[in-house]
């Protein structure tokens, strides 16, 4: 997360995409690839073998984790504007 009074470099404010929350994204990438985990018929759900409904569930895992990471790492518009303005001001100095 950037803060408006972080020291800007040049015209573009210095920011970072790093966040511990990003590690959450490992989950929906790794779990759908662990094929032995779900490569079976039982338990079935509404007639669907486990193999199919489990992978459908992974869609929800993907949506859930990316939404969480987006929400907690989001920069507010005022924050973004302020960072840009302070960078511009420093440039003019």
């Amino acid at each position: 997360m950037s803060s408006p009074d972080a020291p800007p470099a040049g015209v573009a404010p210095r920011r970072s995409d790093r966040s511990p929350w990003n590690w959450l994204l490992v989950l929906p990438v790794v779990v759908p690839l662990l094929v032995p985990l779900f490569n079976r018929i039982e338990p079935t759900l509404f007639g669907w073998p486990f193999f199919y409904w489990f992978q459908l569930l992974m869609v929800a895992l993907g949506v859930g984790t990316t939404s969480i990471v987006y929400l907690v790492t989001k920069r507010s518009k005022t924050e973004r504007l302020a960072a840009g303005r302070s960078a511009e001001r420093d440039e003019g100095r």
């Binding site: 950037s2 470099a9 040049g10 015209v11 573009a12 404010p13 210095r14 920011r15 970072s16 995409d17 920069r75 518009k77 973004r80 504007l81 960072a83 840009g84 960078a87 511009e88 440039e91």
Partner: peptide, 14 residues
């Protein structure tokens, strides 16, 4: 390119 380019937001002057 500069390191700061990769995190630039739409509102930035750059």
């Amino acid at each position: 390119t500069a390191e700061t380019d990769y995190t630039a937001e739409r509102e930035d002057p750059s």
